[in-house]
Design a protein around this nucleic acid. Structure first.
Lengths: 226, 226
DNA sequence: ATGCCGGTTTACCAAATGGTAATGTTACAG
DNA sequence: CTGTAACATTACCATTTGGTAAACCGGCAT
């Protein structure tokens, strides 16, 4: 979870930085508006905490610029201005929350967590892809270099699991647990057998194989050179 | 945009109701906690505004119960309690925002709009729900009032189609085309037969049937009184 | 009331699915 | 080079699935 903090008062900035680190977040700090905008535009953050009064470029302008650029980043506004008009103004500019200084750290943390909760629900990917292979998780269809591939339900789940961990080796035991919901070893070779069928459909006849076995460890989905 | 307001003070409730209507929202009002929970569980709202101090069931309990039932509804907490602890508590229980009384209507409106902005990202829905029935399109699971229902793949697709058109009658021909990909009439009663099995699993043993037949036209998924 | 038409339910069977085990293959140690 | 263990492939069979048709039911027009 990466947070961007844009704040010029270094006492407050330090206070927030330390607290967030302790809470297990990774946090970057920009101390003026232009830097902050630059950070936000050129890196992928999960949330931003933005002061309104900033040197070079004020907070509201940063938010407007981000929204103009279609950057949909949850933003908490931090400000000394406490009138209703200021709050309303901040939210209307595209802020997600407004917190007035002075504030207690626990409240900031609670708001950060509330926003994460909401933002991360929506991010669930509806398709997975690697190289020229892609799965549509909603339609449950598989396409490799434009050609539709017909998989059985179990085969699809197996491939989905490999794709979700693409680049990382997954052991047969892991596969058993996540795809078959077995927490024991049935003493058969179900996984091998199903992998074989899967390869036949997904790899056979295509340029380069994507399903690789790692002797003694398990299987990986990747292209050879990754 | 449908808002659910749970508030026992009728002066405040009226004030909010009028304002929201004027702002173009459709709003329902429950004046105690149990009613509120019932409304939220049995209907589809886009946002809820919840007072904390309520007769019969307090606001935090309502929120907890909703989150337990996997109902992901943006919630604004409204409360006279203004301490940091209360705010933190409210957010930790699954609220998305916390507003203290007295508040100005413009601030409430701004927060409602901010939450809508975030919740309504134009993303393909990954779950469908109607009344107390909900489908998880990714996991391909079905839950009705907390109980898991096991459907066969075809049954799931059929129910999904009904849900996607919930409230609207769909003809058997339509169903054949979209669920079976037949563009002709096979002269059998596949649809009827499968609808029957589906009813057995989805409706039998539950409070109110959701799958209704409209003689001569087709089928609808809805509650009787909608 | 009677029969008919549209819809429902059920039993049945063919096809698809998915696990098992036997057999074949390959990598690597010695 | 050879033996072994890990893995691959394949044939086979039980279970699940899903379509068909026949029996059943209930509202409505005659």
């Amino acid at each position: 979870m990466r947070i961007l903090l844009i704040e010029d008062d270094c006492v407050i900035a330090d206070f927030i930085r330390k607290g967030m680190k302790q809470a297990g977040f990774s946090i970057d700090h920009a101390d003026d508006g232009l830097n902050g905008l630059d950070f936000a535009l050129n890196d992928n953050y999960d949330l931003a905490i933005v002061d309104l009064m900033l040197p070079k470029l004020d907070g509201l302008s940063i938010i407007s610029r981000l929204r103009e650029n279609n950057i949909d980043l949850p933003i908490i506004i931090l400000s000394a201005k406490r009138t209703v008009d200021d709050r309303v103004h901040g939210l209307q500019h595209g802020g997600d929350d407004y917190l007035t200084k002075p504030f207690s750290f626990s409240e900031l943390l609670a708001r950060v967590e509330a926003l994460f909760r909401r933002a991360n629900k929506i991010v669930e990917p509806t398709s997975l892809s690697a190289h020229n292979l892609s799965l549509d998780l909603l339609a449950r269809t598989v396409i490799r270099s434009g050609k539709k591939i017909n998989l059985q339900p179990k085969e699809f789940s197996l491939l989905e699991y490999l794709m979700r961990n693409s680049g990382h080796v997954v052991s047969k035991t892991m596969i058993m647990e996540r795809v078959w919901n077995y927490n024991f070893d049935p003493g058969t070779n179900v996984v091998e057998a199903r992998i074989s069928k899967l390869r036949e459909k997904v790899d056979r006849g295509f340029d380069t194989p994507l399903i690789h076995t790692v002797r003694g460890l398990g299987y990986v989905l990747k292209r050879k050179d990754d």
